[in-house]
């Protein structure tokens, strides 16, 4: 069996072969934004998840206007093939992938294994040179709002049990032993998980080298966790980046049709007055 949308995932070799293709644009999104400066895939641009992919005043994803500006300044065109990669197993690269899809970009792909796999392979070039691309005039024509879950959909899922809820945080966060991993500044008032959510920590979807597990392994993983096939599915974590990673797995590797990322995640839900919480 192959992945549901095999084109959404490209190998490091594919990226190497396409380094010179003008219609392929490579975008690095890191947890640690200093990584790009040390060296990156030739021709890649970097987007900062914190200062460029989020609204800087409201707590929200980057606005449509700002995303258009960002892509225009990077010279990206709606017809380009976008390849995302990053550190930490592509966490924020997957978040970037989700944003590109949310704002209707047609051809988006994730580089399997991310930054560490590229770095580990001797034949893959790395550079500190930053290419200046001629500006473009990017216009967003359609928003795929159904890729995003907000609080009402989460509360509806709890009330009606019409959706699978997947919590991709660590077991200690899920059970409510801790609110957030030690040292994190983004946290919540309460610990626990959304009632009815199944725990499938994101790391269970990847191999030691950071590449995704096979479709059979992934299917078995979610089946064992109690995910019901054919139902709409909502993934969440703490701030929405690890859940983007799982959202990618569910939607593009396993083909779950109605799959949403709840980017507000625990830092929103765990602060809501009156929202039901489960602990165990």
């Amino acid at each position: 069996m192959s992945y549901a949308f095999p084109d959404a995932l490209v190998s490091t070799n594919w990226v190497k072969e396409n380094l010179k293709s003008p219609a392929v644009r490579i975008v690095e999104v890191d947890v640690d934004t200093k990584q790009y400066g040390a060296g990156h895939v030739p021709g890649a641009v970097a987007f900062n998840w914190n200062t460029q992919l989020q609204d800087q005043i409201n707590r929200d994803i980057i606005s449509k206007d700002d995303f258009e500006k960002l892509l225009s300044s990077a010279g990206i065109k709606p017809t380009d093939t976008i390849v995302l990669y990053g550190d930490n197993n592509n966490w924020f690269a997957a978040y970037g992938f989700w944003l590109f899809k949310y704002y209707g970009h047609a051809d988006v792909r994730l580089m399997n294994g991310g930054r560490s796999k590229w770095l580990a392979e001797d034949d893959k070039p790395l550079t500190a040179d930053v290419v200046a691309f001629a500006k473009s005039d990017y216009k967003i024509t359609a928003i795929n709002a159904d890729l995003r879950a907000k609080v009402p959909q989460v509360l509806e899922a709890i009330a009606t049990r019409n959706s699978n809820l997947i919590d991709v945080r660590s077991t200690d966060e899920f059970t409510g032993k801790i609110i957030a991993p030690p040292g994190m500044t983004e946290t919540a008032q309460r610990a626990g998980h959304v009632p009815g959510a199944k725990s499938v920590p994101w790391a269970q979807t990847v191999n030691q080298d950071g590449t995704f597990k096979s479709v059979d392994d992934l299917r078995a993983l979610y089946k064992t966790a109690g995910l019901i096939e054919g139902k709409p599915t909502i993934a969440y974590c703490r701030i929405g980046e690890r859940s983007s990673h799982t959202w990618f797995v569910l939607k593009y590797l396993l083909g779950v049709q109605d799959c949403k990322n709840y980017d507000g995640s625990w830092t929103e839900y765990g602060n809501l007055i009156g929202a039901p919480i489960e602990r165990s």
């Binding site: 990584q35 990156h40 930490n88 197993n89 930054r115 560490s116 550079t127 991993p181 990847v206 030691q208």
Partner: peptide, 24 residues
């Protein structure tokens, strides 16, 4: 930036960054 949710096998960290400089 320390890993936000360390997990086995990630371990890029300082070694990965130093390697990036040496390679790029």
């Amino acid at each position: 930036t320390d890993a936000m949710c360390p997990s086995p096998g990630m371990g890029e960290g300082a070694l990965g960054m130093a390697r990036s400089y040496a390679k790029a």
